[in-house]
Amino acid sequence: MSPAKPILLAEDNPRDAELALAAMEEHHISDKVVVCHDGAEALDYLYCRGVFASRQRGNPAVVFLDLKMPKVDGLEVLRAMKSDASLRSIPVVILTSSREERDLRESYALGANAYVVKPVEFCRFVSAVKELSMFWGIINEPPPDPLPPKT
């Protein structure tokens, strides 16, 4: 039942990351999750550079993106992804604490595919993360990887 492609979780808070992973544990989805601790690292992963230079090529099935992160924040990652032809089609789910209208507006304006507010209650948090990873990681058919440029 494990997804074919990895899920990229960009989350600066290690506890949030741990809780999210705990939520995904049940269906062994967590095996396929790559955790990045800020926006810069997430972009490194997407562009296969820095510490991810040697990773297996291919886009993730989905990016779970926190908004408030050090260095490069979620909205900047989203903007970079949506303005790059090879990354534009990757589904992006904003996973954040904030319900501020400003964030909602900007995220959707930049092309986010979904916006989920992390519930305070753990059981609701677990079910939200589980459902999200089930849907985007397994049920949903991710876009095929872009064709390598013809030489």
């Binding site: 506890r15 604490s97 209650e121 753990f122």
Partner: peptide, 22 residues
């Protein structure tokens, strides 16, 4: 201020509840 409250004050609560559940 409310923006950072919205972002930062909720996270520890989620952790408290989350780790209690764990």
């Amino acid at each position: 201020f409310s923006y950072s409250v919205s972002h930062d004050l909720r996270a520890p609560l989620r952790h408290i509840d989350g780790y209690a559940a764990l």
